[in-house]
Design a binder for these strands. Structure first.
Lengths: 200, 200
DNA sequence: TTGAGATCTTAACCAACGTCAATGAGTCGC
DNA sequence: GCGACTCATTGACGTTGGTTAAGATCTCAA
């Protein structure tokens, strides 16, 4: 009933379980939390990336710009990392990231990252591994997007991240699914009609 | 006229330029080359990955299986790496990879990887950075796929990897574009008609 | 030559998305 | 309340992809 939404990319399954209680506490003590207002950008496409963000509270959306139109890549909510840490210098932001709500973010820059890894050497390997698996997951996402119809993609979103639909305007969900808002509207209507017959 | 096809994922831009001539020679001397026959699989979805491949000669296709149907993820030709090196233990193959032609491959396993990194310490960082940028590139691919029509995707493929279309059966290209072979056939016809008018 | 198999093309029909335009519903500031 | 604005919905229409089925090539082997 109240599962807090598993992320579509398993960004998830807390790999920090591998740390000891003490290590985790230390990690928390090193965290730097910052507030960002609704509408603020975390980064913009093409800019060198110097910070990495994890959402503690709120919602962040990443998107591409293409012929003046926004294409939503993903939504990040409580507990999700907008970009994996362990990024090297010289990495360039591949997209835009904007706060959908007022946000509380865990912000890591290069210096802090060095510090954290110095204190928790095991974390580096954990992050690296996580990043690699994430990459493979991205490939799978692409495959899913290719092989599924918009309807299936919507059903999948509904099944895996139901609360997102309450939280985010539908025209952005549509863009996330790769269709127009009007089409999402019709699609939802179709599903309603079919499911109402099913539940008898 | 005869550019050898830039890969869709810039897998490309030889990051080994950062090595000295001597280092590169050493790298080559450490390479292990293997032949694989057309139709052989390099890995299968779900299996632990113990080897990484770069195509020296031939063509490799990766794909997903979904309800018994294949969905082509990508094609890898001369010079392209099927999966990035610097993968940790315990990584699981996210897809299938099969040789489209008889292939000559540069094969790296964990042991060889250790050896190479021991001999060329700088390479490790280079590979890591490459892997991270690749990850961001995958995100961009997904965005491109979402925001472009099949026609635009085909045009993009035609522009960036023309020789692939000569090399690979069209029904697999169709699957790569996310459409059915019949649709690709119609699409090509439409494009022909339109471009014939243009070239006057 | 004949037949089987694989690949590509074409046609006809339907379903679904895109576009354009109009209408509601909700919020906000005045 | 009122207008302005944003967002969701609906309808009409055209375009395009999926499906099914048929046919055209081509290769390969008997």
């Amino acid at each position: 009933m109240s599962t807090p939404d598993s992320p579509s990319l398993p960004n998830s399954q807390d790999p920090l379980q591998a740390l000891t209680e003490q290590e985790r506490e230390e990690l928390v003590s090193l965290q730097r939390l910052e507030r960002r207002r609704k509408g603020e950008h975390l980064f913009r496409s093409g800019q060198p990336l110097s910070q990495y963000f994890t959402v503690v509270e709120g919602c962040v959306r990443t998107y591409h710009l293409h012929d003046g139109e926004e294409f939503t890549l993903d939504f990040y909510t409580e507990g999700q990392t907008v970009l994996p840490a362990v990024a090297s210098k010289g990495i360039v932001a591949p997209s835009f990231a904007v706060c959908m709500e007022d946000c509380l973010l865990n912000v890591t820059d290069e210096q802090l990252e060095q510090e954290v890894f110095a204190r928790l050497p095991r974390l580096k390997e954990i992050c690296r591994q996580q990043g690699e698996q994430l990459q493979l997951t991205h490939q799978q996402e692409l495959a899913l997007h290719k092989s599924a119809t918009p309807e299936q993609r919507y059903a999948h979103l509904l099944a895996t991240r139901p609360s997102l639909l309450q939280r985010v305007p539908q025209y952005q969900i549509a863009s996330y699914l790769g269709i127009k808002p009007e089409s999402l509207s019709r699609l939802r209507k179709r599903l309603q009609k079919n499911s109402s017959g099913t539940s008898t």
